[in-house]
């Protein structure tokens, strides 16, 4: 446990359901932050079944080993499945950034989180004041590549651009290092499409 300052700390969560590659996503993200010189702590939580249950991968990063390695106030949240929302929205800190797959946000038009249909979430309970929501076609983009399973990689690319807190180079390198080698080309395509995805999209608030 290093000196206690937690300078430059950020807390990130990738959440969805089992089978969406979130644990791998967390590992890639942690690797990217490591390559950018940060100290990370990456954890995950999933239900015993490997498909369908609630799943999340958390990354805490700071300039030195974080005092506390688990998330408590999220800076960045990725939502790939609506079942994941309930457990995470209450952890968002002010000015947090949420990236949701557009399929979760029918009718989402003006960046109001309140308009997003999230089953099980009583949005009145969440203080949404300064939370920025970005709804992007992550799955659609992955499907265009013929591989819906790389939606996680698309999401990492998009998050990289939206957050602007770690380098695109580190993210691309991390994807190549951590994802299965035999699909390196596919993953590289996916992360690059993700990196470009926020471009031209309407950014809420």
């Amino acid at each position: 446990m290093g000196a206690s300052a937690d300078r430059g700390m950020m807390e990130i969560r990738l959440s969805g359901s089992g089978g969406q590659g979130l644990v791998l996503g967390g590992r890639i993200l942690a690797r990217a932050l490591l390559l950018d010189g940060l100290c990370v702590a990456q954890s995950q939580s999933y239900e015993p079944t490997s498909r369908g249950g609630l799943c999340r991968a958390d990354v805490v990063a700071a300039e030195s080993t974080p005092d506390h390695p688990l998330v408590g106030e999220l800076d960045l949240l990725v939502l790939l499945d609506p079942i994941a929302a309930a457990a995470s929205l209450e952890l968002l800190r002010d000015e947090a950034l949420v990236l949701a797959d557009s399929s979760l946000a029918d009718g989402f038009s003006d960046g109001e989180l309140a308009d997003v249909y999230l089953p099980g979430v009583e949005l009145a309970d969440v203080d949404l004041a300064d939370i920025k929501v970005h709804s992007l076609p992550l799955y659609q983009t992955a499907k265009r590549l013929g591989a819906p399973r790389v939606a996680n990689i698309v999401a990492l690319g998009a998050l990289t651009t939206l957050a602007g807190r770690w380098s695109q180079e580190a993210m691309e390198a991390a994807v190549l290092e951590e994802a299965p080698r035999r699909s390196s080309d596919l993953n590289l395509q996916a992360v690059r499409l993700g990196l470009a995805l926020p471009e031209g999209q309407r950014v809420a608030r």
Binding site: A30, L38, C39, V40, A41, Q42, S43, Q44, T65, P69
Partner: peptide, 9 residues
Amino acid sequence: EAIAHLSET
């Protein structure tokens, strides 16, 4: 468990 399954730099 939280440390066993935690990855840290």
